[in-house]
Design a protein around this nucleic acid. Sequence first.
RNA 1: GCCUCUGUAGUUCAAUGGAUAGAACGAAAGUUUCCUAAACUUUAAAUUUGGGUUCGAUUCCCAGCGGAGGUACCA
Length: 608
Amino acid sequence: MKIEEIMVNMVVQAIKALYNQDVDPASVQLQKTKKEFQGHFTVVVFPFLKMSRKSPEMTASEIGVWLQKNMPAVSSYNVIKGFLNIVISIPVWLRILTDINSDKSYGFTEPTDSSPLVMIEYSSPNTNKPLHLGHVRNNLLGAALANIMAASGAKVVKTNIVNDRGIHICKSMLAWQKWGNGATPESTGKKGDHLIGDYYVEFDKHYRAEVKSLLPENYDELDEKAQEAAKAAAEKQSPLMQEAHDMLVRWEQGDPEVRQLWKTMNDWVYAGFDETYKRLGVSFDKIYYESETYLEGKEKVMEGLEKGFFFKKEDGSVWADLAAEGLDQKLLLRSDGTSVYMTQDIGTAKLRFQDYPIDKMIYVVGNEQNYHFQVLSILLDKLGFKWGKDLVHFSYGMVELPEGKMKSREGTVVDADDLMDEMVENARVTSDELGKLNGLSQEEIDDIMRIVGMGALKYFILKVDARKNMTFNPKESIDFNGNTGPFIQYTYARIRSILRKASDDGINIHDRLFSDDIMISEKEISIIQLLSEFKDVILQAATDYNPSVIANYCYELAKEFNQFYHDFSVLREPEQGLKLFRLMLTENVGKILKLGTGLLGIEVPERM
RNA sequence: GCCUCUGUAGUUCAAUGGAUAGAACGAAAGUUUCCUAAACUUUAAAUUUGGGUUCGAUUCCCAGCGGAGGUACCA
């Protein structure tokens, strides 16, 4: 049983004994004592004043006296205003540390037969362009969330929905046909996703030039409204866009030539994506393709129409009326019978539900889709998906650059592959400047630089509360000081170094016993206390759907350890018992740092 | 217009309704006979405004101001 739970129960008993009142254990406010005060746990006594009918100080003192008398773990207490600070005795802390040490899968909850099956959708790329910084945040959050949910005892299925059909991919295909001269990833040496992305840009360039040429001569003299109308007319006339539309129609009809081109080009893109995913360290258990789900969506919508959930307008378009839920009407099928985003999501949901006994569905999608998922939840519920009502839209904020929003038009999009290259290169430059890495093989150096560069990137993104928009500065993002991934990795590498040295000295830190009378400092107790919170941190991150909790915990632990490391000697302590204790503490800080960063998908190096 | 999210040091981020609002970067000043100085120690510096709820509000509620996103045939 955890020390916190025991404390809470004892407080409940104290209230019963002192004031003859029953309190709900959940209402007992037990928190970590702030650094400025002496003690480890603090009981807030304000809620008990009605029962005691005494001043806050008196009440706190009475409870303190009772606890000290009846609880051997409590060695002393002090009262400041309405706060009762409790000091836990050293042997208790030693026992907590040895418990952590002997627990191989410390902090992780094993799934059972009754554990919920959680499906997490993330990444969701379009096949017409490579992944960018926004996708990086999505992928890192999704993968970390999956790890955290699994660690908290859920059965997790990671899934991806690839947006592989539609006008956007036709644009790339058309541009490639027209201006590609048969270019392939092999012939150009380019990653497939980048190659396709280039033709998407190429299409846009020609298209805009074409639209411009179709504008009336007096365009500049028109007022704003007329300009808009003229532009819309020009866009509608554009032969290029019409060709792209024709291609989409032929695709839908299953034209073999178009399908073949589509398949070839998509395969190039997937090969490119796989490389990027691998580097990012993300993976999926099951991938769905929109080309395979959009027809299912139409079917499901028609079914809903028959059952009277939806209605048809005169022009043939199908709508859902969500007025009862306080929302608008929402389009589900266009008047020409083609599907929209919502239709596809319904179809994907249908297939997923067939494939897995889903209890909870989590969609990792940007916050610009908040409204979409609000509607999707209602629609899925109406259509009879049992998890529809409580689907979770893990909504994350946009990533902005110091110059403002990323815009593909203005070429300010940060490409995922370029970014990763830059991070690793930056790690190398910084390490060279510091004269690190001497005496290591090139292979080792490359591996460490990969770990550090990627760690810097991942940590920088994951430490921020997912819901918030964040600013990412590519130039200054690799800061190896402060609240950063490399700082945590550095701490881990130091710990490994200490343990190697201990091992070289023939110190066996296993099979040891602690005497109860060794003197350990408050700093060390504070570290043990942090270690003991690991499981709660995981559970909190899982219930809040927020990986940043884990990131900030790891930083806190690394920081505390660095301060301790600076102030105390680990290996040079002459007293055997204390030396072994410190080594055990060190070893377990390393263990938890590795587990914690592992949840975020961040590797830690043995040396750096 | 309407709906949703958001507002904390110069900057980037923290803070289950709890104590004197924490860190980091940047700024100023220090610490290498010492297990990795990518470290450590000091100093200066912040809750958008006005109400409400209560023992207590950065947190919850209402209103104003600022920022972001969405808003019916784009995904």
